[in-house]
């Protein structure tokens, strides 16, 4: 008895589970190696080994930053802010009804309308705002408007998804109580649903605005206005000192907007 017990080695997993785990890791590694091979087929390794030199070269050309360029960036900065803010507002206007159609408890038809709303959400979310901008610049021409619409189209899915999840999580007894007073559907939404989702809604909006500031800084790369436009110009003319200034400005903007959004969310909750 004692002999048998002392020779048995305790294992965390049974042998078959252990094997399966190792097999899983092996498959993962093999898959990674395969992907790596495919990906690097066209890679020119000379460029890669050359990279440190390139980096040093560009680095040396990027300093000192050309601070005199800043006045030229004020209008683009203003445009960037507007793209993010107006885009977010436009997105909210469209996302709110979509969210109500997508939430199980407020959707007029779970079988027909809800899948449609979910399709809108997933399409909007799958496509990055830069791609939306690419399409819109082609359609309505370059400029701030294309940027606003691109930001709006990308944000619909984000806002609507988080909002409909918030709607599905509300306390049903409050809805029941308002329904029991003989309130109409729209009154129930106004009195029982909206008050419950308002904090979540405000938080989502500010959060998305923060992300949109980040994204709108580069939309100009495809012609949709804002700072990215100046970035594109500077890179095309190899004006690296200006690029540095723009990069720093973007960095500061992103940090600022993150700070603002954190403060606002903190104040709401």
């Amino acid at each position: 008895m004692t002999d048998a017990a002392s020779t048995t080695v305790w294992r965390k997993r049974t042998t078959s589970r252990e094997l399966a785990m190792w097999a899983g890791w092996l498959v993962l590694v093999a898959f990674f190696v395969f992907c790596w091979q495919v990906m690097t087929q066209t890679t020119i390794w000379a460029f890669v080994t050359d990279a440190p030199q390139q980096a040093a070269d560009i680095g040396s050309r990027m300093v000192p930053p050309r601070w005199e360029y800043i006045p030229h960036l004020i209008k683009p900065m203003w445009d960037t802010l507007n793209i993010a803010t107006l885009g977010t507002l436009l997105a909210i206007v469209m996302a709110v009804p979509v969210a109500f159609l997508a939430a199980r408890n407020t959707s007029p038809s779970v079988r027909f309308v809800r899948p449609l709303a979910l399709l809108i959400i997933v399409s909007s979310r799958s496509i990055n705002s830069l791609i939306w901008a690419l399409l819109l610049v082609a359609i309505i021409g370059p400029g701030v408007l294309a940027g606003i619409v691109a930001i709006a189209l990308r944000s619909i899915g984000f806002v609507a998804k988080l909002l409909y999840e918030a709607i599905e999580e509300i306390d049903a007894s409050q809805v029941e109580a308002v329904t029991a007073t003989g309130a109409s559907r729209s009154q129930v939404v106004d009195y029982a649903v909206v008050p419950q989702i308002l904090p979540a809604f405000a938080g989502i909006t500010v959060f998305r605005w923060d992300i949109n500031i980040r994204e709108s800084t580069v939309l100009g790369l495809v012609g949709a206005g804002g700072l990215g436009l100046r970035l594109q110009e500077s890179m095309n003319t190899l004006a690296w000192p200006q690029v540095t200034v723009i990069f720093l400005l973007i960095l500061v903007t992103v940090l600022l907007s993150e700070w603002v959004s954190a403060r606002v969310r903190h104040a709401i909750i």
């Binding site: 306390d171 007894s173 409050q174 029941e176 109580a177 029991a180 009195y191 029982a192 008050p195 419950q196």
Partner: peptide, 11 residues
């Protein structure tokens, strides 16, 4: 109607 957990709209 009066409810168990009051069911007031809290906000």
């Amino acid at each position: 109607m009066i409810f168990q957990e009051y069911a007031l709209v809290e906000r």
